[in-house]
Design a protein around this nucleic acid. Structure first.
Length: 834
RNA sequence: GCCGGCGUGGUGGAAUGGCAGACGCGCCGGACUCAAAAUCCGGUGGGCGCAAGCCCGUGUGGGUUCAACUCCCACCGCCGGCACCA
């Protein structure tokens, strides 16, 4: 105490103290706050914001550290970096807590946010907290309502009655994307079908563009793009009308295999197909239809007693109701071609229906596959009137043309993607801004009356219907048009609406400052000088989060971005240029979970080792996209490493200062100093390369460890040596800073750094210095290593060969053999083939 | 069933077609200590050998190549996604 005049370097690395010190310092300096600066290239670095469940878990830690390392690195590379954070604050757990413990969802949520924000702050993450968004606050969710009204205006929001996915446990509806293996994405309970009136967003209106623009997602993992493409599930085909024999009605079918039209031997329609209601009068048959198996494995059907006429052949084919035909896709009716569709084949076998081959694998291969299964591939048409002899692909075009000419049907494109059902029968979400009036019908709440505030005085019974239904002051309202008594919509919005545009809110300055109306007019009047913040920051350059949102949040956000563009707020088509899907944090071979009892508490670790250690371990243990196997000993290793760095600086504290060393002086250095200098430049190159190459921080840290090892074993003797040591050490500190910012900052300042590390430019390397003077030449004989020789760099191939052949061990092996070939790999390897 | 990813020491993981196992963990040995912890130094894929060295080795089997963890084909195992979408 008091030995040094300025604050001096302690012998022992004390992470708690220095982390607190620098976090306070950074906050006081406002180091992480950003604004638009058109003189700098921008970089928008974003991590998926968390649901405030109570505490940060290791998955969050990993996610946010990856983002922070990128943000800090990009800042040092001269980018103006936007790096915000917020809270996906609406959702069921808050409501469940209310039911269980009697805490109001708002209170529960805000307390969690407080605690978790404290945790994030202790991690030294470089967020501009001024831009924080909290989706459960009225100043945020009013814009959800605003978007809803915009969607209504554009015909992109509508209400319809339909069968929807209902989670009995969450007591609410789920969108298709939120049902995984027939189970609820959140609580894992089996989802049932229920008929309800629901609000939908017409995401299918953008299906084509969402699919087409998937090609633009070059910075995304191919896997995620493929999942989205498959989810959208585009297929081209034709719809064809079949007359129902003996009536004046028709059935419309959809097929992508119009080349097999001549092979249709019956027709299958869905249970719910309107035709069934209209045609089947017999009570027994109706009962049979109703009792058809729901089991997808079991193919079952019932003959309706009616026949359809194939418009191409005039054949009369029986109409069956089949349990595997979906009402929601296509027209709910299909022509059955057992020879060329496996499902139809199995069905035909079961009910002894005819199989007619119309596609051959090649000319003359008749009957192929008709016994054991369907031949589903393309081939050559047979028994297909004027189309016989055509290959499938061509026949599809010709038959589609023919159908359109004869007005029997038309070409259509179908998608698996369904509209996004956004109504939720729960309290803790954004109220849907709609009023029901007996005279005027469904009335949107006028924009100037937004937000529709979620009432606070609510009773949570946990039974049956949404608590909002019980709040008279909320439900009872006046019609905005006629002023008569009316009732409010009590469903709230899916919380995925909140997260579909939050990246926009950050650009506009966070919760309090978001004003989309003025953002639109700002955008319209935007000139070169007063460019809108949205135009400046969007799109997100790097997005980081879990792969579990591959077809949920990531698809919804793409949809919203396109709508937002069409509204005129932004100009980009896609929200996220690059996407990094980080792997899970695993312990003892399983994902960390309370039920498995293998969770590691970030608070405990940060308290014990400091956040820098946790950060370094998370970045070192595996590349970001892979799963990370947790290892307590690995954490110790990271801690040891930082201690070594600390000790190294401490032991040389009076020698490591801002070095005046100039690169021209290299010739006056002794070999070991040159070697350290070279290693330093090699490390800068390696670390930079590792970060640039898919953010492989693990190898970047490994390279840094190598450099630290080399510095440790360097024995400086003269002043010049110490200068090299100082330079090398200070470069190492700079390279370490994105990973372990606190300890780096402390050591940097203690060794003469006047300005903070984030203001330092990222170091550059000199190829000439990084290059080895001598390299080890590997000599192989028939591909096996038989010797190693040191050779000077830049030796030509002939000289290298000569060196190789002069090696005694090599000569021994070559003795008496005939040379076949000699391969030289520039400066690295010689392979002698005998 | 279809689509995608992965398979490397005891372990987490490295390797533009060119020395397999960087770096870390663990383990073994040594120094320091009365002792331990911490720290530091050295060793560490397997087999044979006193040694020099030799042989084997990246899930399995084949192929391309002077040379394959890397490219191609087939198979096995694990993980993830989709699955009556006509």
């Amino acid at each position: 105490m008091g030995r040094c005049r300025r604050q001096c370097l302690e012998e022992k690395y004390n992470p708690k103290e220095i982390e607190k010190k620098w976090q306070e310092h950074w906050e006081k300096e406002g180091l992480f706050s950003v604004r638009e600066d058109h003189s700098l290239p921008k970089f928008y670095c974003l991590e998926m914001f968390p649901y405030p469940s109570g505490r940060i878990h290791m998955g969050h830690v990993r996610n946010y550290v990856i983002g922070d390392v990128i943000a800090r690195y990009k800042k040092m590379r001269g980018f103006n970096v936007l790096h915000p954070m917020g809270w996906d604050a609406f959702g069921l757990p808050a409501e469940n807590a209310a039911i269980k413990h009697g805490v109001l969802p708002a209170k529960w949520t805000f307390e969690n946010i407080d605690y978790m924000k404290g945790q994030l702050k202790k991690m030294g993450l470089s967020y501009d907290w001024a831009r924080e968004v909290t989706t459960c606050k009225p100043e945020y969710y009013r814009w959800n309502q605003w978007f809803f009204l915009k969607m209504l205006e554009r015909g992109l929001a509508y209400k319809k009655a339909s069968f929807v996915n209902w989670c009995p446990s969450c007591e609410t509806v789920l969108a298709n994307e939120q049902v995984i293996d027939e189970k609820c994405w959140r609580c894992d309970n089996t989802v049932i079908q229920k008929e309800l009136e629901q609000w939908f967003f017409k995401i299918t209106g953008y299906a084509e563009e969402l699919l087409r623009d998937a090609d633009k997602l070059g910075g995304w993992p191919e896997k995620v793009v493929t999942m989205q493409r498959n989810w959208i599930g585009r297929s081209e085909g034709v719809e064809v009308d079949f007359k129902i024999v003996g009536t004046d009605r028709t059935v419309r079918i959809f097929t992508t295999r119009q080349d097999t039209l001549y092979g249709a031997t019956f027709m299958s329609v869905a249970k719910m197909h309107p035709l069934v209601e209209g045609l089947v009068k017999d009570e027994n048959t109706r009962r049979e239809i109703a009792s058809l198996s729901e089991d997808p494995e079991q193919k079952e059907g019932v003959f309706t007693g009616h026949y359809a006429e194939n418009p191409l052949t005039g054949d009369h084919i029986p109409i069956w109701v089949a349990n595997f035909v979906l009402m929601e896709y296509g027209t709910g009716a299909v022509m059955a071609v057992p020879a060329h569709d496996q499902r139809d084949f199995e069905f035909a076998k079961k009910y002894d229906l005819p199989v007619k081959v119309v596609i051959e694998k090649w000319q003359g291969a008749r009957g192929e596959g008709s016994r054991e299964g369907a031949f589903e591939e393309d081939g050559i048409l047979v028994d297909s009137s004027q189309f016989s002899g055509l290959p499938s692909r061509e026949a599809r075009e010709k038959i589609a043309d023919y159908i359109e000419q004869k007005e029997l049907g038309k070409r259509v494109v179908n998608y698996k993607l369904r509209d996004w059902g956004i109504s939720r029968q729960r309290y803790w979400g954004t109220p849907i801004p709609v009023v029901y009036c007996d005279s005027c019908g469904i009335m949107p709440v006028p924009e100037n009356e937004l937000p529709v505030i979620l009432p606070q005085d609510v009773v949570f019974t946990g039974k049956g219907v949404s608590p909002l239904l019980e709040v008279k002051s909320f439900v009872d309202t006046k019609c905005p048009r006629c002023g008569k008594d009316a009732r409010r919509e009590t469903d709230t919005m899916d919380t995925f609406v909140d997260s579909s545009w939050y990246f926009i809110a950050y650009c506009l300055g966070g919760n309090a400052k978001v004003d989309l109306n003025s953002a639109i007019s700002g955008q319209r009047s935007a000139g070169a000088i007063h460019e809108s913040p949205l135009r400046y920051w969007m799109p997100v350059d790097q997005y980081i989060g879990g792969i579990e949102h591959a077809v949920l949040h990531l698809l919804y956000s793409r949809f919203f971005t396109k709508v937002i563009r069409d509204i005129g707020l932004i100009e980009t088509d896609e929200p996220f240029t690059s996407l990094l899907t980080q792997g899970m944090v695993i312990k003892d071979g399983a994902k960390m979970s309370k039920s498995k009892g293998n969770v590691v508490d970030p608070d405990f670790l940060i308290n014990k080792y400091g956040t820098d250690t946790v950060r370094v371990f998370c970045m070192f243990a595996a590349p970001p996209e892979r799963d990370l196997e947790w290892s307590d000993q690995g954490v110790e290793g990271a801690y040891r490493f930082l201690n070594r760095v600390w000790g190294l600086v401490y032991n040389n504290k009076f020698k490591i200062q801002d070095s005046k060393f100039k690169i021209e002086e290299i010739f006056s250095l002794q070999p070991s100093a040159i070697s350290l200098l070279r290693k330093t430049h090699q490390t800068i190159k390696k670390v930079t390369g590792s970060i640039e190459k898919d953010y492989h921080f693990n190898t970047a840290i490994a390279a840094l460890m190598e450099l630290i090892n080399e510095i440790s074993s360097f024995n400086p003797s003269g002043e010049k040596d110490f200068e090299v040591l100082g330079l090398s050490m200070r470069q190492a500190i700079v390279l370490l800073s994105p990973f372990a910012p606190h300890v780096a900052e402390e050591l940097w300042r203690q060794t003469g750094g006047k300005e903070g590390l984030l203001k330092q430019p990222w170091p550059s390397w000199d190829e000439e210095i990084a290059k080895e003077e001598e390299t080890e030449l590997v000599v192989q004989i028939n591909g096996k290593v038989r010797g190693r020789v040191m050779i000077p760099a830049g030796l030509d191939d002939e000289a290298v060969k000569e060196k190789a052949f002069s090696e005694p061990k090599v000569r021994e092996h070559l003795d008496g053999k005939t040379l076949k070939k000699v391969v030289v790999v520039q400066g690295r390897l010689v392979n002698i083939v005998i």
